[in-house]
Amino acid sequence: MEILKAYLPQHLFQEVPAPAGSPPEVVAAAARAEAKRKARVHMLAVLCGIVTAALASPAITNYTNLFTDKSHFPQPLSTILIILALGLFSSGGSGLWNSVLEYLLKVKGIKDAEEKLAASKAEKLKAETDKAEAEKAQAEAAKARAETKPG
């Protein structure tokens, strides 16, 4: 993307800072211009991602068969949708993938916590069952002693 930016007009991608001590309307205009610049950079990143995915489409088409057999999309449309999705995902950069990784780690943490909770419940139930069985055995032993006592 940086190579492509070098061939495009520089004013499209230059930061637009507000001069120090500027009035609020100048700061607001600079903020709007900066937002537009960021949008242009993101659109360029998406375009580069889609072009890269399109260039890799011969490799991608092998995997689109997995989706077209079970989906309602014809093969060409499925390939186009996958290329667009891969282009969007790749343009997200490391921030997107870090967010995905963080989400997956949280899901794993939830599953681990659920497993620990289930294990502790099972241990508690086993302890209660063992205690009940021990009390039953003591009661039976006491009853047997009482029956064998002369008297």
Rank of each mutant, 00 (worst) to 15 (best):
R40E: 01
R40K: 12
R40Q: 04
R40F: 06
V41G: 03
V41R: 13
V41D: 12
H42T: 08
H42V: 08
M43S: 07
M43R: 13
M43T: 09
L44T: 00
L44F: 00
L44D: 03
A45H: 05
A45N: 11
V46L: 09
V46H: 01
L47I: 10
L47M: 10
C48Y: 04
C48P: 01
C48E: 08
G49C: 04
G49I: 03
G49H: 01
G49K: 02
I50W: 10
I50D: 01
I50C: 03
V51E: 00
T52D: 03
T52P: 00
T52V: 12
T52E: 07
A53H: 04
A54I: 05
L55V: 12
L55I: 13
L55P: 02
A56R: 02
A56F: 10
S57T: 08
S57E: 04
S57W: 01
S57H: 03
S57Q: 06
P58D: 01
P58L: 09
P58K: 08
P58R: 08
A59P: 01
I60T: 02
I60Q: 00
T61R: 10
T61D: 09
N62G: 13
N62R: 15
N62Q: 14
N62D: 04
N62E: 09
N62L: 14
N62W: 14
Y63N: 10
Y63D: 04
Y63K: 12
T64F: 01
N65I: 06
N65T: 09
N65W: 13
L66G: 06
L66K: 07
F67A: 13
T68H: 08
T68E: 04
T68G: 03
D69Q: 14
D69K: 15
D69H: 13
D69C: 06
D69Y: 12
K70M: 11
K70R: 15
K70E: 10
H72D: 15
H72E: 14
H72I: 15
H72Y: 14
H72G: 13
F73L: 15
F73N: 09
F73M: 14
P74S: 14
P74H: 07
P74W: 05
P74C: 07
P74D: 14
Q75E: 13
Q75A: 14
P76R: 09
P76I: 11
P76L: 12
L77G: 07
L77T: 15
S78T: 12
S78E: 07
S78K: 02
T79G: 10
T79A: 12
I80R: 00
I80N: 03
L81D: 05
I82S: 02
I82L: 15
I82F: 05
I82P: 03
I83D: 00
L84F: 06
L84A: 09
L84P: 02
L84R: 05
L84G: 02
L86V: 04
G87A: 11
G87H: 05
G87L: 11
L88D: 05
L88A: 07
F89R: 13
F89Q: 11
S90R: 07
S90E: 03
S90D: 02
S90T: 11
S91C: 11
G92E: 11
G92N: 06
G92K: 05
G92D: 10
G92C: 08
G93A: 04
G93P: 00
G93K: 04
G93F: 03
S94F: 06
S94E: 15
S94V: 08
G95K: 10
G95L: 14
G95F: 10
L96I: 02
L96H: 02
W97V: 03
W97H: 09
